[in-house]
Simulated assay, not measured.
Amino acid sequence: MKIKKILNNNAFITHTDDHQELIVIGKAVAYGKHVNEEVDESKIYKTFAPVSRGDRKLILDMINDIPIQFFQIAKRIVDKAQADDQIDLTDSVYIALTDHIASAVDRAKEHLFLTNQFIWEIRSFYPKEFSIGLWALQLIEQQCGVPLPEDEAGFIAIHIISGELGNRLDDFQAVVNFIKKLTSIVTYQLAIDIDRESLDYNRFVTHLKFFWQYMMYNNEKQSIGDLSNDMLAIIKGKKVAAYECALKIKTFIHQTYNYDLSNEDLLYMTIHIVRITENTGRQHDEV
Rank of each mutant, 00 (worst) to 15 (best):
G154R: 02
P127Y: 02
V29I: 11
I6G: 05
E150W: 00
L190K: 11
L190Q: 11
D171L: 07
D195C: 07
A174R: 12
I87K: 15
D61M: 01
C245W: 01
M216P: 00
S131T: 14
I13Y: 08
E21Q: 09
C144I: 05
S124A: 07
R168Y: 06
I59M: 00
I77C: 07
R56M: 01
I63Y: 01
I119H: 03
D170F: 02
E152I: 09
E164Q: 06
E150A: 02
Y126D: 02
A74K: 08
L97W: 03
E244T: 04
H111V: 14
T183W: 11
I158V: 09
D55W: 01
G225V: 09
D85G: 02
T256R: 11
V287N: 06
I253S: 06
L190C: 13
I6V: 11
Y31T: 03
E121W: 02
M231P: 04
K250T: 06
D17K: 15
H19C: 04
H34Q: 08
F118K: 12
V175C: 08
I66L: 13
I192Q: 02
Q283K: 13
K209R: 13
D85Y: 13
Y126Q: 05
F70S: 11
N64F: 08
E38Y: 07
E278S: 11
M231H: 03
I73L: 10
N64Y: 03
G145S: 09
K57W: 00
T47K: 07
M269S: 14
C245S: 00
K43E: 00
